[in-house]
């Protein structure tokens, strides 16, 4: 999952540094992720994983690092599996 996320961060993140230079737990906003790019990234993630982020998860924390994004996605996908 993290590799797919990395691909999407590369495509939509608009970061000034190469994504492979960024650790899984590094803060993406500190690395230069703008709010516009973060929304583009969210749309990309929704499309790639066929999910919709609920409003309770639409906050900075949920998308603050590659690991945080993976945890956010896992939370949604787990819920879907249970349902």
């Amino acid at each position: 999952m993290n590799e797919t996320i990395r691909g999407l961060v590369t495509k939509f993140g608009g970061l000034p540094v190469a994504v492979d230079q960024i650790a899984d737990d590094a803060d993406l906003y500190s690395a230069g992720l703008s709010s516009f790019a973060s929304v583009q990234l969210m749309l990309g993630l929704e499309d790639a994983f066929d999910v919709e982020f609920p409003d309770t998860l639409l906050n900075r924390k949920s998308f603050s690092s590659i690991n945080a994004i993976a945890a956010t996605l896992t939370q949604i996908l787990d819920k879907r599996d249970v349902a």
């Binding site: 709010s35 929304v39 969210m42 749309l43 982020f53 639409l58």
Partner: peptide, 13 residues
């Protein structure tokens, strides 16, 4: 402009 960006993902109450 910021709101319009957020409304691409945020669903209004």
């Amino acid at each position: 402009s910021n709101m319009s960006t957020m409304l691409l993902v945020h669903k209004l109450d």
